[in-house]
Every structure is written in C-alpha cells, then in structure tokens.
Nucleic acid binder design. Sequence first.
DNA 1: GACCACGTTATACGATCGTATAACAAGGGT
DNA 2: ACCCTTGTTATACGATCGTATAACGTGGTC
Lengths: 204, 204
Amino acid sequence: MTAASPARASFVRAPDARRQSLIEACAAGLAVRGVAGLSVRSICADAGVSPGLLRHYFAGIDALVAATYGHVGEQVSAALAAAVAEAGASPRARLHAYVTASFRPPIAAPELLATWLAFWSLVKTDPEIARLHGEIYAAYRVELEQLLADAGVAAADIRLAAIAVTALVDGLWLELSLDAQVFTAAEAGAMAERWLAAWLPPSA
Amino acid sequence: MTAASPARASFVRAPDARRQSLIEACAAGLAVRGVAGLSVRSICADAGVSPGLLRHYFAGIDALVAATYGHVGEQVSAALAAAVAEAGASPRARLHAYVTASFRPPIAAPELLATWLAFWSLVKTDPEIARLHGEIYAAYRVELEQLLADAGVAAADIRLAAIAVTALVDGLWLELSLDAQVFTAAEAGAMAERWLAAWLPPSA
DNA sequence: GACCACGTTATACGATCGTATAACAAGGGT
DNA sequence: ACCCTTGTTATACGATCGTATAACGTGGTC
C-alpha cells in the first residue's frame, strides 16, 4: 500500500460541522423521502460521512430526528422573529407579519411539509418529540398572544384567539403545501386578515 | 402426516372479506405504528393471513395503502353525511353539523391522526395518493360550498369561505389530535362558529 | 520525532424488509 | 368419485435495515 494509494479515504476533522451536516441531511432527507424513506445510510451519504458516524454523534436515528426537529423549530422561530422585526412598530403590522410569514418562504417551503409531517407522526410514539412539540407550539402561541394583546384583542378573548389563529394558519399552510393549485399565498393572507378582524375590536 | 395433524393450517375461502381485512389491518397498523412502522408482515399478521396474500390482492404494499386511503375517506364522508342528515332541515344547522363533525368521534379519533399523516406524507411521492387527496379534499369543499350557499354566504365569497373554513377545521382537528390538553372539542366548535359568522350575513 | 486521544472510515452482524414461488386445500362442476 | 380452478399457507430469496466494532488517520502536546 503506497502513499499514493491510501487504504481508505483521507479526512479532515470537523466535529461541530459534521454533527450539523448530519442534522441538515436528516432534514433534507425527510423532505425528499418522507419518514418511510429515511435511513442511516441515506442520511450519512447525503452528509458525506460514513454510516458509523451517526451513532457516534447521536444515540440512534431517532435521536437524530429529535435533534433535527429542534433545529427546524429554531429556524422557523427565527424567520418569524425577522418578519416581525421588519414590520416596524405598529402592533397591527407586527401581528399581520407574524401571521402571514407562514405563507411565504422560508416557512412555506416544500421541504418543510414532510419534515413537520414526520415530526407529527412521532408525537404519539416518542416522548422527546412530544415534549419538543409542546414547547414549539406553546412558544408560537405565547408570542401570538402578546401580539394579539398589543393589537387590542380583548383580554378575555386572547387565549382562544391565539389558538384559533394558530389553527387557521396551520390549516392554510398545510393545504398550501399539499396542493398549491387550490389557492394562492396572497389569498391565504387575506383569509388570515379576515380571521384576525373577527377577533380585533373595530378600528377607529 | 395423519388427518388429525394437518401439514398446514386449514382455512376457509373468503376473498371479499380477506381483501377487506387487509385494508382494515392497514388502517389500524398506520394508526398504531405510523408509516415508518408499517410492514407486509405486521399488516398480514393483524389481518390473520399469511404474508404472501398481500401480493395476491394488491400490486404491493403501496397499492394497499392507496386502497386504505380510499376506504378511510369513504368512512369520513359517511360520518359527515350522517351528521348533516341528523341536523334536520335548517341550512345553518346543517352547516354547523358538517363543520363540527370533525371535532367528535368517529372523525376525531386518535387512530385517524396517524392515518392522515401517513397519507399526507405520501402525497408528494405517490401520484395515486396525490390524486385521491385531490378528490377527497375537493369533495369536502364542494359539499361545504353548497351548505355555505344554502346558509346565505354571498356568492362572491363562497370559494374563499369554503377554503378558509376547511383550513380552520383541519388546523383545529390536527391540534386536538396532537395534544388534547390545549383546548376542548366544545371550544373548537365555538371557534368554528365564530369563523362561520365572519362569512355569513348578519341574521335577522 | 514520538505519543496519544479521538474523530473517522470501512465493514460485519443479526434482523427485517418486500416480493416471488411452490405446494396444497377448498369448493364447484361434471 | 374425479378433475380443475383458485384462494391460501408456508417459505425462500436478495436487498436493506440499525447497530456494533476494528482499524486507522488527524492533529495536538511534549
């Protein structure tokens, strides 16, 4: 075995980047193949590492999926925060931005549908995913409650309004992702506005 | 090998029942194990038949899943029709019944969540499932459009109202199924009523 | 340069997968 | 009773699965 012909591939150590590339490959793999098509080998091939490395960084493929869920949730959260920051100081503009951000990229992205479907399907069977789900949904709703209050929704209505608006956004986002032929993102935004109007006091 | 000790298990031919029991076992298997845990052997064991029989009745496990989707869709459709029939002759009562049926059994059933998640996750990768999805969703929406029109929604609003109400129902049903601690089925019904009210003309 | 920790590649193992196929039993017709 | 069709059981096959593990290459320290 000469130096010009190595017995196995050479490599550069990059543990942080390696772990992250596994997470990102997992998210991409969920998007392309769904949870049924996800496997250790396909994830590691996509990440450009050998199959044994997954078990080095995670307890198993399930633990990688949970880490991916957390990562995707952070990305969505960051996109929402950015949308609100861009909307300026008006409470109603911030509320509108928060609600409609789900109908545009990066949240309205085809790869996110399969990712979320996979996570939802694990909520009933994986306690860690169920915990994460509870946290992520509650965080969205707590922020939405604050924005609704700032915009003038009656205190007695806040809780149900937040739940109801979350539900409509989820339903519109889901249908938009499943079949983009039925209605447009702009129409989704108009429907969301109409639902917000049903909870807000009439403007002066 | 004596007659008292058969070489293999005895059986009774029942092709129609056998095919149906595979479909029902598939639906139940999706509910318990999700799409990732579904296999030919587990389905056939649950159905009480040997593994080779799946390929006798269906082109493969994918074709069985598609047949199961059709079957489940018919069951939901029948439940909706029954709810509307029970509501009597008042257009608004019928609309209310159609919309809120999703928050009660048999539609609000834990086993249906995983079934629908599995189907949704196949929409992007299986053309037959995508076709079925389009049909089932359109059928729901066409019926809802009729009920909205009967109840007095303005003609110009019908299309968007049907999409919007469908989205809210889906979102509430999804969250109710994922985590029944956040709000109740009765609250879901109240939210749906408020959303209907946002599209209906004021009652005299 | 020598040594060592550990990140990484490569591969093996037992288990399970979907599909294919041989054999046989049930049930109907003559 | 015999024959034939077909529904069914039982099992084999090649492929892929997640996990485990040996070996080695990298990079830091002395």
